[in-house]
């Protein structure tokens, strides 16, 4: 299957060099295979290492039970759900699933449709809990895709998401999103939204 792809760049975290990558606008067989064959073993290894060096569980990844094969199968053929992947060096570096059925909660955009990021995960070797993350920019590339989709669909760049506990500072400080507080109806995760103006600033 020929997957649509748009060029993006990641950064090699060690050297600082730009690394060519591709934004794939669906989660296909290749991405699921990569998740199973590369992400899972790397995650097992991370957990084993975190245990050995005694890192408190508060800093363990919260998504070890996520199954991207199930997440993809769940929404096959449904117009409202889109999958995205970042690939580089022949391997999937990040995955994201979005839902177009959601609306804004923030006062300035209540009831206005936005792209809701249901799941966003970067490959284990790109994460902060690794001693030396390999590539930087995967999360940013995926969020950029979400904002671009929002613009394409006429939602003016609006996006929303529930942040994993450890990731809150990224959305608030690095992405400039609005913090709408803890959502008791959603695993007590913190909910963030990006307004149209914030999206313009984000894409800068």
């Amino acid at each position: 299957m020929n997957q649509g792809g748009l060029p993006v760049f990641l950064t090699d975290a060690l050297s600082g060099d730009g690394v060519p990558a591709t934004l794939v606008t669906q989660i296909g067989e290749q991405q699921i295979s990569d998740w199973h064959d590369y992400w899972r073993p790397a995650l097992e290894e991370t957990l084993a290492r975190l245990r050995v060096i005694g890192v408190p569980r508060a800093r363990w990844p919260q998504t070890t039970h996520w199954n991207w094969e199930s997440k993809t199968k769940q929404v096959v053929g449904l117009l409202a759900f889109r999958g995205f992947a970042i690939t580089s060096q022949g391997v999937t570096q990040g995955l994201m699933r979005v839902d177009l059925n959601h609306s804004g909660r923030q006062a300035t955009q209540i009831g206005k449709p936005l792209v809701y990021v249901e799941y966003l995960e970067v490959a284990p070797w790109n994460r902060a809990e690794f001693a030396k993350p390999r590539y930087r920019g995967v999360g940013t590339a995926l969020l950029t895709a979400a904002v671009d989709l929002s613009l394409e669909e006429g939602f003016h760049g609006r996006i929303g998401l529930h942040s994993l506990t450890q990731a809150e500072s990224f959305y608030r400080d690095a992405c400039g999103m609005s913090d709408l507080g803890i959502d008791e109806n959603y695993d007590n995760l913190r909910y963030f939204e990006m307004t149209s103006e914030q999206a313009t600033a984000f894409l800068g």
Binding site: T11, A128, Y171
Partner: peptide, 27 residues
């Protein structure tokens, strides 16, 4: 892209519900 990637330094990145995924019979 590189300018924006720099913003990620020191940050953990991820989003989504912690619920179990539904099991599909043919998985």
């Amino acid at each position: 892209w590189k300018t924006r990637a720099q913003r990620e330094e020191g940050h953990y990145i991820g989003a989504g519900s912690l619920a179990l995924d539904p099991q599909f019979a043919d998985t």
